[in-house]
Simulated scan of single mutants.
Amino acid sequence: MNLLTRLLAITALASASLIAHARDLGPDEALRLRDAGTIKSFELLNQAALAQHPGSRIEETELEDEYGRYIYQIELRDPQGVQWDLELDASTGEILKNHQDD
């Protein structure tokens, strides 16, 4: 196996492992984590996100397991029609990302 082939194989394996470490969680698993106290309630996480953009409405939410850390992703639309993407640490409620969607 030549050097280029080995590098391509290593790159492919590394990419596959990155994809495998971020996965969407279904409603049953999310509720189990909430009930176990592993993550905050969705109501509290939604309130924390909405506090960043008062008057906004929630358009979409998603819970992911990223490298063993639970991330709550939420899309908001503010009263001016601007869409915002936020990410919160679902265990602590900490705002990790808060940016305007392009």
Rank of each mutant, 00 (worst) to 15 (best):
Y67V: 01
H21V: 03
K40N: 08
Y72V: 00
T38H: 04
A12L: 14
P27C: 03
E29C: 02
T92A: 02
T61N: 07
K40T: 02
D78T: 03
T11D: 09
A49N: 01
G81H: 02
E59F: 01
T11A: 13
E64A: 04
A49G: 04
Q47A: 07
Y67L: 02
A48L: 13
K40S: 07
G93P: 02
L33C: 05
I10K: 10
L7K: 11
A30Q: 15
E62A: 13
G37F: 06
L4S: 03
N98V: 05
E62N: 12
R69P: 01
R32A: 15
P54G: 11
L45S: 04
L88H: 08
Q83S: 11
Y72P: 00
E59D: 09
T61I: 11
G81N: 04
L96A: 06
G26I: 03
L3F: 15
L33I: 02
H99E: 15
A36L: 07
A51L: 09
G26N: 12
E94A: 10
L31P: 02
D65F: 03
L25T: 10
P54V: 03
Y70H: 01
L33E: 07
D28V: 12
A48H: 13
R6V: 12
R57P: 03
T5G: 14
G93M: 11
I71E: 00
Q83G: 07
P54Q: 07
L13P: 00
E62Y: 13
L45V: 05
A9H: 13
E43F: 09
A14Y: 02
Q52W: 07
E66L: 09
E62H: 12
S15V: 10
K97V: 04
E62T: 06
N46M: 09
I19V: 15
A9G: 04
D85G: 10
D85H: 10
P54R: 08
R6S: 11
G26L: 09
I95A: 08
Q47F: 08
D24C: 06
D24Q: 07
Y70N: 00
A20Q: 14
R77H: 03
Q73R: 03
R23K: 10
K97W: 03
E75H: 04
L96M: 08
Y67G: 01
E43V: 06
L4I: 15
T38Q: 03
Q52L: 06
Q83A: 14
I10L: 15
E87G: 00
L50T: 13
F42D: 08
L45C: 13
I74S: 14
L4C: 05
A51C: 05
K40P: 04
L50R: 13
A30W: 00
A9D: 06
E66H: 14
A14D: 09
L50G: 07
I71F: 01
D85I: 05
L76Y: 13
R23T: 12
A48V: 14
